[in-house]
């Protein structure tokens, strides 16, 4: 049984057994949940299908959320990508478009997969689905990589938090980016240790990020943080695959994230009392919406 206390331990175990992290996590979860590996893979495939459907509908939709605060940005981004006018190239711009798309679908009461939360639901699928398209990966490979994402997410949830109310946005969009980065590394043939470094990079880049949703709604800044979270994941995966290593070991980074989350004042943890939620514009929006 895996205890999910340490990402390093997970990576070491994978290396010793000559397996991928996803294989270890799948075997462990099949035992833990008393179901066959095939059953779990099919359940995960169902989630991937929901993710793909959300990306697809979000990219074409121009409808607005109930508050009127969001909608249509993914479509704008997608037009730039399709028109070949992107500044940063196909993989990144397509990833950004999908991240916005899925987060907008969430804001508009569409169906998504919390990954790890609803607020951060666009990050993991945006990167993995884009890599699948651009690098011609199979669906089975992407489904398996979600077990790596989930395995690392379980360690983060256990040792720190994956909830904005508990740990700020570093715990939501940060964790999602870290999970996505590790999964992307595995998908692109990187080692378990590289996945661990990628996870560390992504978290380190957003340590201290607060949760400050305008009017308490999962829209501003959440949707755009899904885009930047997906970009963060791509940057982290790229560096790890180049053989770059994190000076601070991944488990210590998670420890730091926990300490920072604990030290964060309540006003910056989903209560909509601080940060962006406390700006004059946000307060005006809140007054208008909540009237």
């Amino acid at each position: 049984m895996i205890t999910y206390d340490s990402i390093q331990e997970l990576a070491d175990r994978a290396r010793k057994k000559g397996k991928r992290i996803s294989e270890l996590v799948l075997e462990d979860q099949a035992l833990h949940m008393e179901q066959s590996k095939d059953e779990l893979v099919e359940l995960m495939r169902k989630s991937l299908h929901v993710m793909a459907a959300a990306a697809k509908s979000g990219l074409t939709s121009r409808s607005l959320s109930a508050s009127g605060l969001s909608g249509g940005d993914a479509n704008k981004m997608k037009q730039v990508v399709d028109g070949g006018r992107s500044l940063s190239g196909k993989v990144l711009s397509e990833t950004l478009a999908k991240a916005l798309a899925i987060a907008e679908v969430n804001a508009c009461m569409g169906r998504i997969v919390a990954a790890p939360t609803a607020g951060s639901c666009g990050i993991i699928p945006a990167l993995l689905l884009t890599l699948k398209e651009e690098h011609h990966l199979t669906e089975d490979q992407v489904v398996m990589s979600l077990f790596t994402a989930a395995g690392l997410g379980m360690v983060i949830a256990k040792k720190a938090s994956i909830s904005g109310a508990e740990g700020g946005c570093q715990a939501e969009c940060g964790s999602a980016a870290a999970m996505a980065a590790a999964a992307a590394v595995e998908l692109m043939g990187g080692s378990p240790q590289m996945s661990a470094h990628a996870c560390a990079f992504a978290l380190k880049s957003v340590l201290g990020l607060v949760c400050d949703p305008v009017a308490g709604l999962v829209e501003v800044p959440c949707i755009k943080r899904n885009a930047s979270g997906a970009a963060n994941a791509l940057v982290a995966a790229e560096m790890a695959l180049a053989g770059i290593e994190s000076t601070i070991p991944v488990d210590e980074v998670i420890g730091a994230m926990k300490a920072i989350g604990d030290a964060m004042p309540k006003a910056l943890k989903e209560t909509a009392e601080g940060g962006l939620a406390d700006t004059p514009t946000a307060k005006k929006i809140a007054r208008e919406i909540l009237r």
Binding site: Y4, V25, Q29, H32, M33, L40, L43, M44, K46, S47, V50, S65, V105, N106, A107, C108, M109, G110, R111, I112, V113, A114, A115, P116, T117, A118, G119, C121, I124, L146, F147, A149, A150, G151, G153, M154, A157, K158, I162, M179, L217, V218, E219
Partner: peptide, 20 residues
Amino acid sequence: MNVFDIIGPIMVGPSSSHTA
């Protein structure tokens, strides 16, 4: 806790606590 608590649930947005 299992993997589907982390990648999941499948739900209608926007908020797991306020909607699901």
